[in-house]
Design a protein around this nucleic acid. Structure first.
Lengths: 145, 145
DNA sequence: TATTGTTATACTCTATAACTATA
DNA sequence: TATAGTTATAGAGTATAACAATA
């Protein structure tokens, strides 16, 4: 590498945030394929949004900040692979109620465990106080916007 | 919205980081198209990696953590739109030295100004101490991995 | 008519494989 | 034979537009 503006000195916030996220994605994908074939990071994120009683496409799309078309594609994919299942509501047959299957639940546990491992490793490296502060600060920014 | 697991309570780090990043991307794109037609966030990121004296495709690819094919596509696009220019090195004509044009420099200034606006707004909201701590902590995590 | 979800299509980002030109 | 970069192709993520079914 020559003198390209690499991972050095004056990395700006966007790059720092992006690298932290990349670390988490790697951990989620690490042994994903072997246990949860076909699942990618976007699918874990979506599965986590589904509450135990299920949710409608429109609501999931809003929660994921996506169009319902885009979200619907993911749901079709997840259902084909058996991570979700869905039924039409008897009282309004336009509505499709999407639920996680047992596999879907296990996938969520997998991804949450991966994130917990990263959090633990960060907490160990930074010390619990600094890590808690980081989380709290990010949370405050998120609640604010 | 029903009871979907939305932007509420126990948001995990991945979501918090993702939302912070989204905020920055929005600010960069806000009045991008009007001043820098065709540029998207990925292009700003790449333009920022190019040092004043220029850089080779291979080095840029490494700095961006991308394949040189993928990076080369972006460079072609940027060059077509006039944000970069390139010459072959006389001493090794395989090598293409990529430089920013004046437009490219202005684009970098635009994106850095956008990021500075977000940083300023965060700093105002959190107070300078908490914001500096956030940055420093992210920096430490980045240097560590 | 309004709303839920679908089908069709396209664009963006990035990757892998195979290749050309130069060293 | 090794390296710098290119061409060809594909898959992943998400969007817009037009539509069908139901309310």
């Amino acid at each position: 590498m020559t003198s390209v503006n690499g991972v050095g000195a004056e990395a700006h916030v966007a790059r720092l945030l992006g690298e932290a996220l990349r670390r988490i994605r790697e951990e989620i994908l690490a042994d994903s394929e072997e246990h949860f074939p076909g699942l990618r990071v976007s699918h874990y994120r979506l599965l986590e949004l589904i509450p135990p009683e299920g949710a409608r496409i429109t609501d999931l799309a809003e929660a994921a900040t996506m169009t319902k078309q885009g979200l619907g594609q993911h749901v079709d994919y997840l259902q084909k692979l058996g991570y979700t299942e869905s039924t039409r509501l008897p009282e309004d047959r336009r509505v499709r109620l999407v639920r996680r299957t047992t596999s879907g639940d296990q996938a969520v546990a997998h991804s949450q465990a991966a994130i917990a491992r990263v959090e633990h490793s960060w907490s160990t490296h930074l010390g619990p106080t600094r890590y808690t502060t980081l989380r709290q600060t990010l949370q405050d920014l998120g609640n604010w916007h």
